[in-house]
Design a protein around this nucleic acid. Structure first.
Lengths: 165, 165
DNA sequence: TGCTATCTTATGGGATATCATGGAATTTTA
DNA sequence: TAAAATTCCATGATATCCCATAAGATAGCA
């Protein structure tokens, strides 16, 4: 089985910015780090820029490498490539879990998404997100109401089965 | 894992032109210098000519070699090759980190990109860039707004998935 | 099925190391 | 020999490591 990021949970952020990554997510990060071995701590990547400015996104090493590899296929110095590098490489950072399964959110990262002393972790399949709790709730509400306004043939659930394999 | 240049940070440039290279970038420079050994300081290359003129670009020894190799594939004496040689070879210089992880930006280099007493380092995967902070912010804003103006099928993120693996 | 022992998780506090930066001393160079 | 560049030392801030604990979760067993 390829484990994916699933579920949501609330965690305390202490004065040093330390916050526990949900244990279930840790398993995914371990599997997604080719250099991980029992006893060590997995590396991964947090992307904070790009399209969404309102949350952080965590990627396993292997899933971010996939993206990196695709980007490297674009011609060096091309506009597209520079844009993607900027959004995905520049506005991101390597992270490593500590012994106890925590990471440190720097002052800068906390400010980026307006986090105080609590954070929500939300599983999104190949990635996970970190939100300030209130903003997260707003996001959910917005999603809910925009879903309700969709017509039948705009419903993404129904579109799913029309995709080819 | 092959470490890449990731993230961005702001550093002071002192009266002598000294500036700290972000610790995370130092690790990448070390890995990318075949002659590096523990205890010494890695060499790398700064390109100041070329594509844009508004920032400096830093390459590891091994990534600049890749570029050099690509250039050598072009026909000798061709206009293209001459131009690239000029930008990448002529307008570049070897650099070495000092003991404390700093480099010295000469007057000339500072003038090239209009740097005063602060500099932004921005990771771009196989290379990194050094910017004057205001210019960097402008670059980001320009990128942001040009991204917003793209149509769905010009979006480089979406184009990524269409590339072959 | 209940009870206890063990492990895992989430969290906190203090000690230690690394990083970014400044200034002085020394060498090089023109 | 004065200016410029390089080396050496110093320090506060930040990040990292190490240890501690309490609450759940899990396992084993009677």
């Amino acid at each position: 089985m390829i484990r994916r990021f699933r579920g949501e949970s609330l965690h305390k952020v202490d004065a040093k910015g330390r916050v526990s990554v949900p244990a279930a997510f840790r398993r995914v990060l371990e599997e997604g780090d080719p250099d991980f071995s029992r006893g060590s701590s997995p590396n991964f990547v947090i992307v904070y820029g790009g399209v969404r400015g309102d949350c952080l996104e965590g990627y396993t090493i292997s899933s971010i490498s996939k993206v990196d590899k695709l980007i490297s296929k674009l011609p060096r110095f091309s506009k597209d490539r520079e844009m993607l590098e900027r959004f995905i490489n520049t506005q991101s950072t390597y992270m490593q879990l500590d012994e106890t399964g925590r990471i440190v959110l720097s002052q800068r990262l906390k400010e980026k998404i307006g986090i105080g002393d609590e954070a929500i972790f939300a599983g999104m399949g190949e990635k996970f997100q970190i939100w300030e709790p209130k903003n997260y709730q707003n996001e959910l509400n917005a999603l809910d109401s925009s879903f309700k306004n969709l017509s039948e043939d705009e419903n993404p659930f129904l579109k799913l089965d029309q995709l080819q394999d």
